[in-house]
Simulated assay, not measured.
Amino acid sequence: MGGPVVDILMYHSISDRGGATSIAPATFAAQMAAIAEAGVPVITLDDYLAAKDGRGTLAPHSVILTFDDGFQDFADAAWPVMAKHGFKPIVYLPTAYIGREEGWRGIAEPPRKLMGWGTIRALAAEGVQFGSHTVSHPDLDALPEDARGAELERSKAVIEDRLGRSIRHFAPPYGIAGPEVRTAIATLYKTSVGTRLGQAGLGDDSHDLPRLEMFYFTDIARWRAHLAGRGAAYLAARKGLRAIKSAVAKPWQGIASGAGR
């Protein structure tokens, strides 16, 4: 990949719950410390867009921190670690579940609690960015056009109303967003991140950005090697396995979609 490389890291729950969508707090802290020690800058999606549009420059290698679903453990376990390092993440919110337990397909047992609006507003004041993850966390590809539009528009409007700021970024539930859905997303949001495994470059489609599932980097030595530019072979192997899984499984089965809840 020519030009700057951006690792868009994908997280969900920072807890000891286990499974592909949970990272243990101690492991998460070690992953963040490795970024700081490697000197890889943590940027925002807006920084990425500015460089893409020629309004800024990026380091040869940088990181963006993303969290799907807005679980309460983001506030309890993830944000204190990132704040210590001065890292600014983005959290994608499914608005119907704010302050409630997760209730969508493939949920963990017992269900995990999402942050309430008071916590979200406090975090926004401290520098956390927020994006939309729809209203009800559906498979957008399976919805008729009017219902899909409502999911995209209402979630944006609710978050903007609650936080008093523009919401520019989106993550489709389960990472599922076909061409028609991506076109609809692009009318409302500046970026969309999915579950496609890979590193982003300035030439990537802003509404089909790849991410790195951090469940694959719980081995801190492997994560340090990646940050040092020695992880190409491992990433290629993971991509190959993901391609095999996606060829034989439904979109919500297996690690590929478990990562996209």
Score class of each variant (00 low, 15 high):
Lys156Gln: 12
Lys88His: 12
Ser206Glu: 14
Ile14Trp: 03
Gly2Asp: 11
Gly106His: 05
Val181Asn: 00
Arg238Phe: 06
Arg112Ile: 11
Gly198Ile: 02
Val248Met: 10
Ala34Lys: 09
Gly258Asn: 11
Leu9Phe: 13
Glu145Val: 15
Gly19Trp: 04
Leu93Glu: 01
Leu202Asp: 02
Ala237Arg: 05
Arg224Glu: 15
Asp205Thr: 08
Gly164Glu: 14
Trp104Asn: 13
Val63Asp: 04
Ala36Phe: 12
Asp73Glu: 08
Ala34Gly: 09
Val63Trp: 07
Gly19Ala: 13
Thr21Met: 12
Val128Gly: 05
Phe215Glu: 07
Arg168Gln: 06
Leu197Tyr: 06
Ala221Glu: 15
Ile185Tyr: 13
Phe130Ala: 03
Val91Phe: 06
Ile43His: 03
Leu152Thr: 06
Asp204Glu: 07
Asp47Ile: 03
Arg148Ala: 02
Pro111Arg: 13
Asp47Trp: 08
Pro251Trp: 01
Ala232Pro: 01
Ala36Asp: 15
Asp204Tyr: 07
Pro111Phe: 09
Ile64Met: 02
Gly2Tyr: 03
Glu151Arg: 00
Gly131Pro: 05
Leu140Ala: 11
Thr57His: 12
Pro89Ser: 02
Ser257Gly: 15
Asp219Tyr: 07
Met82Thr: 03
Gly116Ser: 11
Arg121Lys: 10
Gly131Lys: 02
Lys239Val: 03
Ile176Met: 05
Met10Asn: 13
Ala30Val: 00
Ala150Asn: 10
Asp161Pro: 00
Phe130Asp: 01
Glu126Trp: 08
Ala33Val: 07
Glu153Asn: 00
Ser257Leu: 04
Gly131Phe: 02
Thr44Tyr: 09
Gln31Tyr: 01
Thr44Glu: 06
Gly106Thr: 10
Lys84Phe: 04
Arg211Leu: 04
Pro94Asp: 05
Glu160Lys: 04
Pro144Met: 02
Ala233Tyr: 02
Gly127Cys: 07
Arg196Gln: 15
Pro111Thr: 10
Ala232Met: 06
Asp68Phe: 06
Glu101Gln: 07
Thr95Val: 12
